[in-house]
Structure formats: C-alpha cells, structure tokens
C-alpha cells in the first residue's frame, strides 16, 4: 500500500475543492442568472474538459506550462522551479480539468432558486452578498455540494492528465492512480488490488455520505 501516493491524491483533491468552491459559486451563479449572447460559448468552454481525452488536455497544459512557455517561464522566474512535474503544476491542471464538474452542478443549483425569491430578498433590503449568504446559498447548496463531491472524487480518480503532467515523482506528483498503474506494470497485482479497493472505498464513502446527508437535510427542509 502506497500511503504517500494516497495522501498526495487526497491533498490534491482537497486543494482542488478548496479552490473551486468559490469559483463554482461565483461562476455558477453568474451563468445561472445572466443571459448574454456568448453564454452558449462560455458554457461550451466550461464543458470542454468533460469531453476531451485527458491526454489531449494534458498535452495542451504541458505546452502551456512548459519551461519555454510564457506561463512556465514566469513561474520559473518567480518560484525558482518549473511548474510541470510539481504538485503546484498538478493542482493547476486539476483545477482547470475539474471546472466542468464544479461549475455545472453549482449552476443548476442556482438556477433552482426562483427569480421572485431572489427579487424578494433584494426588496427585503438584502445586499447582493447578504442575499447570497442568507437566501441563495441555503437554497442552491445541493448543487454546490454535488459540485464539490464530484470534484473531489473525480480528482482522486484522475489518471491521464496526471500522467501527461509528469506524475511519477513520489510525494510530489505520484498520485494513487499512477501508483496503481506502476504496480500493475511491475506485476504487483496484490498491491494494485489493495490500492484499487481503497480508492473504491473512499470514493464510494464520500459520495454515499453526501447523498445521505443531503437527503436528510432535504427532508428537514420540506
């Protein structure tokens, strides 16, 4: 059992969720409430990571973050090491790759808040921020929660993009999914089996716990 790889995966998933939570609320709310001409294009861009093979996505990220790219050069100059083959590089890739998982359900959540309820909040004297905290989020939270759970579980299971971003440095970029792949390559079927089962258990537990929690809160609300 490769505990280092497992903790790295959990750390990556946790940070990805932490970064995408505010992003999903702001962007999901914006897409849910606003009508504008390029909305379809924005939604398509958000959905893109869902349909592209991770290898394609990873390839572009590698190009964008590499030492010779402007972003990569800037990172190198600022932090003294390159972005690819590091945990930060993985995190940036993971955040971008999870945008669709984070924004889409949050958008659906905010779309479920009736327009007149939002207007009533404003007419009750609530500023947009207060309306978000007191009225919209309490009503949209199932969507936001689903977004975060999907993001977490999906990050744990991501393989292709991490492989492309150089995911084989233990403790830095070697996540549990990569570790399992390495074990299989090395004919360590028992080790791969244990780690696979662990991953299944963690993912199942996370999703099931969320669903049960939201069902309970949902019952209390209605």
């Amino acid at each position: 059992m490769d505990w280092t790889a497992l903790f790295l995966s959990l750390r990556l998933a946790g940070w990805t969720v932490a970064i995408l939570l505010p992003v999903s609320i702001v962007t999901g709310r914006w897409l849910a409430y606003r009508q504008f001409r390029a909305k379809g294009l924005v939604e398509a861009v958000v959905m893109l990571p869902l349909v592209l093979p991770p290898t394609v996505f990873g390839f572009y990220l590698l190009m964008a973050f590499g030492r010779n790219s402007p972003i990569g050069a800037f990172w190198q100059a600022s932090f003294g090491h390159q972005l690819v083959f590091t945990f930060e590089g993985l995190l940036v890739a993971s955040v971008i790759f999870n945008l669709s998982f984070a924004i889409q359900p949050a958008q659906r959540g905010f779309e479920a808040v009736p327009v007149d309820v939002r207007e009533a909040a404003a007419c009750c004297g609530m500023s947009p921020m207060r309306s978000l905290l007191r009225v919209e989020l309490p009503l949209a939270w199932p969507g936001v929660l689903t977004a975060m759970v999907l993001t977490f579980a999906h990050t744990l299971g991501e393989f292709g993009i991490i492989l492309m971003m150089g995911g084989s440095i233990p403790g830095e970029t070697k996540t549990i999914a990569i570790a399992i792949y390495d074990r299989v390559q090395g004919f360590d079927m028992a080790g791969a089996g244990i780690m696979s089962a662990t991953l299944v258990a963690i993912s199942l537990f996370t999703i099931a716990a969320t669903y049960m929690l939201s069902a309970r809160v949902g019952r209390r609300l209605s």
Binding site: D116, V117, S127
Partner: peptide, 19 residues
C-alpha cells in the same frame, strides 16, 4: 438598487424564503 429603496413588495406567488 432595490435593497436601497425602502419598499415593501408582496409578490404574486408571495416568494417567501422556503428555508
């Protein structure tokens, strides 16, 4: 903006905060 106007509105379907 609406929240800066001291106005009381009763909406057609009441728009109560369900939670």
């Amino acid at each position: 903006p609406p929240h800066r106007r001291h106005v009381g509105v009763v909406f057609q379907n009441y728009a109560l905060f369900p939670h």
